[in-house]
Structure formats: C-alpha cells, structure tokens
Computed example of a mutant assay.
Amino acid sequence: MVRVVRFHEFGGPDVLRIENVDFPAPGEGEVRIRVKALGLNRAEALLRTGKYIETPPLPSGLGLEAAGIVDMIGEGVDGFAPGDVVSVVPPVSMVRWPAYGEVATFPARLLVKHPPSLGWVEAAALWMQYLTAYGALIDVAKLRKGDFVGITAASSSVGLAAIQIANMVGATSIAVTRTSGKTHALLEHGASYVIASEEEDLEVRLKEIARPEGVRVVFDAVGGPIFEPLTAAMSEAGILIEYGGLSPEPTPFPLSHVLSKRLTLRGYLVHEVIKDQERLDAAKTFILAGLASGDLQPVIAKTFSFDDIIEAHHFLESNQQFGKIVVTL
C-alpha cells in the first residue's frame, strides 16, 4: 500500500484526500518511481474543479511533475535502471499518469536523468515551466537576439522561465504584472522592464519601451481586455501566443490591429512539444544546456510537505507566489 492524493468530487482544495491504495507494477514502456518531490501547476487546480481540458472519472488522482528514484522498470524499457535519479516531463494526461503520490508511474520517454547538481525540489520544478516557455518562445515564435517580448503573469513559474529564456537568447523581456508589488523581484530575476498593468497605461508603456518597431512576441497567460493594449503595441508581423486564460472577462478580437499589422494570434499547449519526439528532444537539449550554464535556474516560491497538500493548493490559488510551489516527500 502507498499513499496517493485523490479527489472524489469536484471543488476547492479541501476535496483532496490522502489515501492508501494498492499500486500496480508499471506497464509496457513505463517506469515506476519513488517520488521525492512534486511541482504544482494551475492545471491541477483546474482538474480538481472540473475545468481542465480533460474531465476525469471520479475518484481521480492528479499531478504533472515529479522527481524521484526509479523503483521498477516495465517491459520494453531501455536506458533506465532501479536507483536512477530522474525528473518527469509532464504527461499529456495526468488522469492516466497522476504524479501526486509516494509512488508514480510514467512513460519511459518522459523521464530525464536530471543533472546531479540539482536537488529534488529544483528537479521537480523544471519541465512544465521551461518546456512551456521554450515551446512558445523558441520553437513557435523563433525568439531571437534584439526582439522585444512581452510576458504577462510574469511572476508565475512559466513567466519567470520565459524571462530567463529571453535573456539566454539575447531578447529584451518586458514583464507585465498586475501591481507594482512584485516589480523589484522581477527586475532582480532578470526582467529588462516591468509594467504594472493596473497602475500604468499598458499600451503607452509598451510602446515607449519597444520603440520604434514595437513588441514582436507576446507570451500571454491572461486573455481578456488586455488583448487590446497588447496588440496595439506589437510590431508588424508580430505574434501573440496565448497559453492561458486567467481573466474571467471576455477576450475581444483586436481586428484593426490584426489586419493593419498582419499579426498572428496563436493558441498554444505544451502538449504539442511533448507529443513530438523531435521537438521534445530539441527542447530538452536547450533546457539542459541552460541549466548547465546557469542561465536557467528554477525559482522556488515555497515548499510544503506531502501531508500539507491541501494547504499547498490553497497557496496555489492565492496568487501570492513568486515562482514554483513544490511539495516534498
């Protein structure tokens, strides 16, 4: 018997339960790990509330990121052995391969032997944030030296990863956050500029910073009314990549800006990189190189113990965090 986190109904953090279950051996092409740390993501809160892109049968497990020690190997798996220290690229389905537990099983192709210089906490905070930012900025938008890139929800783990990746390739990052409370921290963590969207005129500030050509790449997790000022400040043939939807308000289609500037508005899910082995291999090479050079360094907001998973989810929903929330076992 092992302890796992499950929920039997949709709702807030208090629906989460730690339960003892019999845990099966890994199937063909799978590897079972003994989990040492878990990275928390907003996707888990969405699954828990029934608002995610997949709807689970109940009861359901959850979780996308983990780091730990290989415990058992399924048939047809090469390259891993019991005792290997690994971290996990998020699976396409957390319902099929949930991470929240003392033990978890994942497809072998999604395991990475993480650098020995990383502790468990940092290793569990890697792949969702850096793959999401890399896939959008490098793989899709081809971000390059000299570009201006606008990054909304900049104090999130993905936002901070995007700032680091922008710096790594020589782009100029413009961090967009709601209030000025996190301005100093964002500048300390590499943002070239910070705009507090509720305290400043976002369009005016973006145009001032990115003059004369404008912002070529926008990496947005918010949607809603912010689309108008964002697109107004973009360059000719710029690209806005939407990977979230945090705003509860409708998102207008900025027709005049899209037509006059020939803009691309593109929806993005990290799954498109994870499903494509060639793109995933390129992403892993880029990220591991950035970790080795020190250009990429996971920012940890707070750690919680496994027994405090409910408290960790309350903190996840508080929007107070700066960086990644990690649960340790």
Rank of each mutant, 00 (worst) to 15 (best):
S192M: 06
P250N: 12
G119W: 09
T231A: 11
V103P: 01
P82F: 02
V270F: 04
V88Q: 00
L255D: 02
V270R: 08
Q297N: 13
V258S: 14
A171P: 08
R42A: 05
S318F: 00
L38D: 02
P107S: 07
G244D: 01
L111I: 08
L160N: 06
D308W: 07
L246M: 13
A221P: 10
V218T: 11
I310G: 10
A210Q: 14
F253V: 04
L263G: 07
M234D: 00
V21C: 00
V204G: 03
R211D: 04
L131H: 06
A125M: 06
D147A: 04
I18Y: 01
K261G: 06
V112F: 12
P225Y: 02
R211P: 04
T328M: 00
S87I: 11
G214M: 12
G181T: 03
T179W: 01
L186S: 06
S173E: 07
Y100T: 04
L58Y: 13
I138Q: 03
E249H: 03
V270K: 00
G214W: 11
P298E: 01
D308S: 15
G50D: 02
L47S: 09
E317L: 01
T328S: 02
S260K: 15
A108Q: 03
D307N: 14
A133E: 05
S173G: 09
S60N: 05
A161V: 09
D14G: 00
E188S: 08
D22P: 11
H257V: 01
G224W: 01
A301K: 05
L269A: 14
G190P: 05
L64D: 06
D84E: 03
F322S: 08
S235I: 03
P57K: 10
M234Y: 08
Y268T: 00
I151D: 02
F23Y: 15
F10C: 13
L143C: 05
I163L: 04
A289S: 15
L269C: 14
V4W: 10
E9Y: 09
R216Y: 03
S235K: 06
V4C: 11
S192D: 15
P252D: 02
Q129A: 15
I226N: 05
K284D: 05
G238R: 04
N20L: 07
V204R: 13
V2K: 14
E200F: 11
I300A: 07
V149A: 14
L62A: 04
V15T: 15
I300Q: 07
H314F: 10
F148T: 10
L46H: 13
G119N: 12
P59A: 08
S155K: 11
T179H: 07
S180L: 02
T183R: 15
K284W: 05
V86E: 07
P90Y: 10
V70E: 05
M1H: 15
M1I: 14
L296Q: 10
L269N: 13
V70K: 00
F10Y: 15
D84W: 03
